[in-house]
Structure formats: structure tokens, C-alpha cells
Amino acid sequence: MTKIVVAVKYVPDATADRTFEADNTVDRENVDGLLSELDEYAVEQALQVVEAGEGEVTVLTVGPADAADAVRKALQMGADSGVHVEDDAIAGSDAFATSLVLAKAIEKLEYDMVFFGMASTDGSMGVVPTLVAERLGLPAVTYASEVSVDGDTVTIRRDSDAATQEIEASGKVVVSVTDQTGEARYPSFKGIMAAKKKPVEEWTLADLGIDASEVGLDNAWTKVESYTPRPPRTAGEIVTDEGDGGTKLVEFLASKKFV
């Protein structure tokens, strides 16, 4: 019986026009949100692990009311239950505060493993899995392109630029996975119907014994001073190849001194 907690994030849609609030935090109100694409791979891998044996998948998110959508999507994919930590004081939290809330919530759950996506598609720091592991005192095997579980031992393959590595850890383990682990499934109609009956717990900071002074924008360890939109690119020159496209391309490169 393997109990896996999958931590997921509700993020502004990467294909929408993402922007900021007046306080320089990410605008999460006026841009449609969804379950971070990179977290779908973590849900998928967790489901595959429990399907190969016996187990349960609990999906955990920290975020505003709308973040319930991310939990619902994971339940539709096949997760068994959900936990949504929501508290106004959490708004604007940095990676450290987020990892605190996640770690306290995970401690409150029964678990053998914790799965994460490699990074969020909004903040995209990619450090929350390792921070949660650090807080819980657990091994972290991160950026997996392949995950295999044998009893309480997790082995991952990691493909970095320099090498392909196999990394192993036992006992309670934190795992983060890349999009190379394989396509995430789409919710089936049956899955969508079943998700409506799955339990979702709603917790606040008080439920986790966290004081508001430990989280939120005012207690972040970094500060965004300003944000600037990228200036629009001026329209370039487009030519149609009439047998001389390659030569014209090189003429352009030469004009910019690349050749």
C-alpha cells in the first residue's frame, strides 16, 4: 500500500496574456487559471505507481479559491482525494513560505512519497520540491525523466546536459518529475463523474499551526521592485524563396556582421 501525496499548483494559463497586480505579484484574478501543465506529469506518475500495485493518491494544493480547479482536474485524472489549503494570509508568499505550508500539510497526511512537477509554469523557480524535502528532512530525487518504485525504494533516471544518471533513495522520499516521464492522461467521462464524489478537505493556516507572520507578501525574503513589459519587436523583413532564399538569408546575416 503506497500512499502518495502529489503537490500541484494552480497557475495563470501560459497561453493567456499573463501580467502583474499593483503590488508586483502575479495577477491570479483576471487571467484564467488551470492545473500547471508540468504538474500533470507528477499526477500521472503517481497514478502509475499506485496502479502497478496498491495505493492511494492524494492531491494537495495551496492557493486561492479558484485553485480548487487544479485539485478537481487531478481527481478527474484519477487521484483519490484532495486537500486545498486556502488562507488570505498566504497571498504573495515566496517559495520559502509556500514550502512551509506544503510541508506542514504533508506532515498532517499519511504518506510514503511526495511527488512534484519539476517547476511551476509561472514562477518556474523549480526549488519548492527540494525546499519541502529540506524542511521534512527527506531525501529528494529531482528532475526525473523516468521513475520506478520497488517497495520503499525509488529509483529515477535523470538526463542532464553532462550525463545520464540513476539516483536512488529509500524510505519516505520527495520526487520531482519532468515532462519526459510520459504523456499525462486526459480525464475520462467516468473520471469526471467520479471526481464529484471524491473527498476534498479544506484547511487554513490555523489547521496547520502556521502563524500569518510566517507567510504572505509582507514576509517574503525577496521583493519585486518593478516589472517592465518587453518592448514589442518591430516587424522584420520577410522574403519568399524564389531560388535565392538562402543567399538572401546570408546577406541579412552579413549585414548584421554574423558572417
Partner: peptide, 21 residues
């Protein structure tokens, strides 16, 4: 996005560009 673009088949355009360089 481009500063310069060629509408054409890369299998024609690229070898010609490579030779020209």
C-alpha cells in the same frame, strides 16, 4: 517575432545558405 524571415522549404534554403557562408 523575426528580424528576417524566409518563406520557403528549409531543404532548399538551408543548404544554399550554408554554401554561401
Amino acid at each position: 517575432l523575426v528580424d528576417f524571415g524566409v518563406v520557403g522549404d528549409l531543404k532548399q534554403v538551408l543548404p544554399q545558405a550554408t554554401e554561401e557562408i
